Computed example of a mutant assay.
Amino acid sequence: MDFLGNHIEALIFCAQKPIKVDEIRNCLSEMFEADVPVKDIETTIEKVSEKYASDEYAFEIIHSGGGYQFLTKPAYQASIGILLKHQSKKRLSTSALETLSIIAYKQPVTKSEMEQIRGVNCDYSVQKLLEKELIEIKGKSEAIGRPMLYGTSDKFMDYFGINSLKDLPTPKDFAENENEIGPQETEEKAQE
């Protein structure tokens, strides 16, 4: 495999949807600061596709949606189906995610503090999060009744692919989109 092939293979691999030849060309042209001919890209994609057509690999390059992407081969559909079924059981409900978010940002936090923020009972969500080991009991509060304090676990970090609570998004990461459709109300109009 040549140098160009490695770059094309990496681009196809990391693309979240089928990547078009023009997109590949634009990336490579910027990378090498030179125009890369479409014919060279198409020839290289054919070579990479031939490589992955071998039974040695469980995935292959598929041309679909006007672009190229890696997909697993049909022979592995059954095992992938089982994995997806298992993963769907591990998904968190919206209420569990809301509760987990409160715990992550406010920890250590009591159940009554969570309920005050959410406005609903959090017993079920807290129980499910404890079962999934995404949160853990960090101790007891000094408040009346000494309620349990909850915080995130190491499994929480792994589940969300972060290394530290400092990696959690901050409010500025949720800034409004600049390219919204429709008229924008100003704050003064909204208060009228």
Rank of each mutant, 00 (worst) to 15 (best):
K20V: 10
I45L: 07
G145K: 08
D154T: 10
K89N: 04
S93A: 14
T43W: 02
K132R: 15
H86K: 09
K172Q: 11
K172N: 09
F174P: 03
Q107G: 03
F13Q: 12
M157W: 00
F32V: 08
F59D: 14
A175S: 13
I144N: 07
S64E: 15
E30G: 15
D55H: 12
K85I: 02
E42D: 08
D167M: 08
I144R: 13
A75C: 04
Y105E: 01
F3T: 08
L92E: 03
Q127K: 10
D167Y: 04
E50V: 11
F156K: 06
G161E: 14
S64A: 15
L4P: 03
L4H: 01
S112L: 10
P169V: 05
E142D: 09
I80A: 08
S79R: 07
P147S: 03
I12Q: 02
G151Y: 01
I144C: 01
K132C: 01
M31R: 12
T94R: 13
A96L: 03
I103P: 00
I80R: 11
E192A: 11
E30W: 00
I62Q: 12
V120W: 01
F3G: 01
E9I: 07
V48Q: 02
S164E: 11
K155N: 13
F70L: 13
E192M: 10
E133R: 13
N177A: 11
I117G: 00
K89H: 05
D173R: 09
I162L: 09
S88Q: 10
Q87V: 08
R25G: 09
S125T: 07
D173F: 08
G81D: 08
S29E: 12
S49L: 04
L100N: 01
I102P: 00
R91Q: 15
K155I: 10
Y150L: 09
Y150D: 02
F160H: 05
G65S: 12
I62A: 09
G182M: 07
A78G: 02
K166T: 12
A75P: 03
E178R: 10
F59Y: 15
G5I: 06
G5Y: 00
I162M: 08
S93V: 04
V109D: 01
S49A: 15
D40C: 02
M1Y: 04
F32A: 05
Y105V: 03
